[in-house]
Design a protein around this nucleic acid. Structure first.
Length: 274
DNA sequence: GCTAAATGTTGAT
DNA sequence: TCAACCTTTAGCT
C-alpha cells in the first residue's frame, strides 16, 4: 500500500536491518542481475525516502560515502517483505523476487516495483530535484509548493497528486485531507488562499507522520467512527476514500466517486464546498 | 474459490 | 492512450 508513509517506514526498516554492514544483493527473478552485481557485497551506507522514492546508498567500506545507489519506486503493486535469516537456510521462495538483500541476520525481498535501477550520486540528485515538498522530510519547502499551487489553473485534487508539487501523497491522502479541510477537490489552485494551503500542508504532515507510526492510513477522528472508542477498525479508517454509496460520516449524504486525471476521486458533495 | 480493481509510474505505440 | 509491473484485497458466488 505504497503512499509516502510506507516508503519512509521501509527506509527506516532497511537502515535498521542492513545499515553499516555488507549486504549480499541478488536478483532471484533474474531481471536485475546486472544491477545486483554492481552492488553485491558492498556496505549499505544510506537508506532514505523522498516522497514515494527510495534510495539505498552503497559504499565500498563502512563509514564511506555511497557511490552507487539503488533507486526503487514501488508503483501500484510493488512491495518489500522482511524476515529473519534462519541459520544456513535461504529465505523462503515465493513469487517473483526482483531484488533480494541478505544481511547478517535478516533478508529483504523486493517484488513488483515500477522502478529498480542503479544510479550515481549525481543521478540521485537529479531525481530528487524533480520532486516537490515531502510532508515527511525536514527539508520540505512547503512555501514553494504553495507558490505553485496558489497560481495554478489545475484543481487542488490533481495538484496534490503531482509528485513534482507535493511528494508522497497518493489517492488515499488526497481524498482524505481534502475532506478533513472540507475543500471541494475541483477547486482550482489559484482560488485557494495562503491560509488554506498552510492548513492543508499542516494536515498532510500530521496524517503522513501518523501513517508512518501506525503502518497504515487512518484519517478519521475517534468521534467520527462508527465505534467511537478503541483502535480504528479498517472500515472506520477513512471519511470518503473507497466509501462510494455509503453515508458521509458528518452529514449522511452518500459519498460519490468520479474520475479526476484518470484516478478515482471520492468526496462528499455537501460537506466539501470550501 | 474466483475475479476485478487497487494506494502509481514508466515506456511503447 | 494503453500495456506492463505481478501482489493484495474486496467482493462476489
Amino acid at each position: 500500500m505504497p503512499e509516502g508513509h510506507t516508503i519512509h517506514r521501509q527506509a527506516t526498516e532497511l537502515r535498521r536491518g542492513f545499515g553499516g554492514g555488507p549486504v549480499a544483493v541478488s536478483s532471484p527473478q533474474g531481471r536485475f542481475e546486472a544491477g545486483a552485481a554492481l552492488l553485491d557485497g558492498r556496505v549499505l551506507a544510506k537508506a532514505e525516502a523522498n516522497g514515494k522514492h527510495l534510495f539505498l546508498g552503497f559504499s565500498d567500506e563502512a563509514g564511506h560515502k555511497p557511490q552507487s545507489w539503488l533507486h526503487v519506486h514501488l508503483g501500484l503493486i510493488g512491495s518489500w517483505t522482511f524476515g529473519p535469516l534462519a541459520a544456513g537456510q535461504p529465505p523462503p521462495a515465493r513469487g517473483a523476487v526482483r531484488v533480494r538483500l541478505v544481511g547478517e541476520n535478516e533478508y529483504a525481498d523486493l517484488r513488483g516495483p515500477t522502478v529498480c535501477e542503479v544510479l550515481t550520486t549525481h543521478d540521485v540528485t537529479a531525481v530528487r530535484a524533480r520532486l516537490g515538498a515531502d510532508p515527511l522530510r525536514k527539508d520540505a519547502d512547503h512555501v514553494r509548493a504553495g507558490q505553485r499551487i496558489l497560481k495554478s489553473k489545475v484543481p487542488i485534487g490533481a495538484l496534490l497528486m503531482q509528485q513534482e508539487v507535493v511528494a508522497g501523497v497518493g489517492n488515499v491522502y488526497r481524498a482524505e485531507t481534502l475532506f478533513r479541510a472540507r475543500i471541494n477537490p475541483w477547486t482550482l489552485g489559484k482560488d485557494l488562499d495562503q491560509g488554506t494551503w498552510d492548513a492543508l500542508w499542516a494536515d498532510l504532515v500530521l496524517l503522513l507522520k501518523d501513517g508512518v507510526k501506525r503502518g497504515r492510513i487512518v484519517t478519521t477522528l475517534p468521534q467520527d467512527r462508527d465505534r467511537r472508542s478503541g483502535p480504528a477498525r479498517r472500515e472506520d479508517a477513512h471519511y470518503v476514500y473507497r466509501r462510494t454509496g455509503l453515508p458521509c460520516r458528518i452529514c449522511g449524504t452518500l459519498v460519490v466517486t468520479e474520475p479526476m486525471v484518470g484516478r478515482n476521486l471520492y468526496r462528499c458533495v455537501v460537506c466539501q464546498t470550501g
